[in-house]
Design a protein around this nucleic acid. Structure first.
Lengths: 159, 159
DNA sequence: ATGTTTAATTAGAATGATTATAATTTAATA
DNA sequence: TATTAAATTATAATCATTCTAATTAAACAT
C-alpha cells in the first residue's frame, strides 16, 4: 500500500505530464477520492465532501475534475442504472475495472476485486475480432444474508 | 421465429394477466419494439417511431410503457454510460440479458447472444453468498475492422 | 348494450443530473 | 514579475426523466 501523499503526487504528475494544470481544487477532489477509495460516490457526494474542506469550490469544477480523471484513467465512472454516475479511484494494482454485485433488497454495491474475464476477452477476440480494452460486469441479485433479514447494508453501516 | 402478431398477443396477455390494461398506445409501442428487436433505442427514439403511426401519443406514455415492460421482463433497460437509457425486447429464447461489445471508434453496440456467465454466477454464489438474478456484461474496445478503416458502423448502415 | 369503476393517457410543468457561458482568477513558464 | 492560456466561479441552460391535474378509455358487472 502506498501512502495517500505518494499517490496524490503520482496523480498530479500524470496530470502535468499530459499538459493539465495541478490546482488546489483538483488536489482537494483527489484527496477525497483517495480517502473513499471504494465508496461509489456520485459527483454530488464528492462535491459535498470536498466542500467541507474547501467551501468555495463549485459543483462544476468537481464535475470537470472527475471527467478529467476519468479521461486519465485514474478514476472509473460507473452507472448502476439509477440515473447518477458514480466514481471510484482506479488503483494501480487493478488495471481493469472490477466487478460488482448489486443487491436488489438493500441496494448495496459490493466489489469483486479479481479479474474473472481474461478468458472471455480472448474468446471475444477470437470469435468476433473485437479487441477488449475495458469491461464492465455487474451481477444483480440478493445476498443470502439480506434475504434472511440480516441485511448486508446494516452490517456495513454498523462498522 | 414467431410472427410479430403472435408475439404481440402473448405480450398483451402477460400484461392483462398481471392486472394491467391493454391499450392502443401500449400496443403501438410494443409493435415498434418488435420491429426493432436489437436496435438499442432510447426512449426518445421509440417515441419518435411510435409517433409516426400514432401522432397523438405523449412522451410520458412511452416512458411509462417502457417502464412497465421492463417490470414485466419483456424488455431490458440498458445503460451504456452516455446518459440515456436504452431499450430492447427480451425475446423468450434468451431469458438472461445478453452481452455487449461497444466499439470506442464508431460507437456501435453489437450483441453476444450466448450466456457466458453461468459458471461465474455459481462462483459468486459460492464465494460471496450472492444469488444472481440478472447480470450485465459489456466489453469496451475496438473491432479489428474499425481499426483498419473499414468501419463496422458503415457496413451496418449500408445494409 | 350501458354504466361504473379504476387505471391509463395527455399536455405541460417540475425535477434532477449534468454541461455550457462569461467574467475572473490562477498556474506554469519565460 | 509579466505573460498567456487554462481553470474556476456563479449562474443559466440543457437534457432526460418523472410528476400532476384533468380527461379519456378498458374491463367488468349489470
Amino acid at each position: 500500500m502506498i501512502s495517500v501523499e505518494e499517490q496524490l503526487k503520482s496523480m498530479k504528475q500524470q496530470m502535468i505530464s499530459k499538459g493539465y494544470k495541478s490546482t488546489i481544487q483538483r488536489e482537494a477532489t483527489m484527496r477525497v477520492l483517495l480517502e473513499h477509495e471504494r465508496d461509489h460516490m456520485s459527483a454530488e457526494d464528492v462535491y459535498m465532501r470536498v466542500k467541507t474542506r474547501f467551501p468555495e469550490i463549485g459543483l462544476a469544477t468537481v464535475y470537470r475534475t472527475l471527467e478529467l480523471l476519468t479521461e486519465l484513467h485514474l478514476v472509473e465512472k460507473m452507472n448502476f442504472g439509477d440515473g447518477v454516475a458514480r466514481f471510484d479511484l482506479r488503483s494501480e494494482d487493478h488495471e481493469h475495472m472490477h466487478h460488482h454485485m448489486i443487491c436488489s433488497i438493500c441496494g448495496e454495491v459490493e466489489e469483486i476485486q479479481d479479474d474473472w474475464l481474461s478468458e472471455l476477452e480472448q474468446r471475444v477476440k477470437r470469435e468476433y475480432g473485437f479487441n477488449v480494452s475495458d469491461h464492465r460486469l455487474d451481477f444483480i441479485g440478493t445476498f443470502s444474508s439480506c434475504k434472511h433479514g440480516d441485511c448486508h447494508r446494516h452490517r456495513e453501516n454498523a462498522s
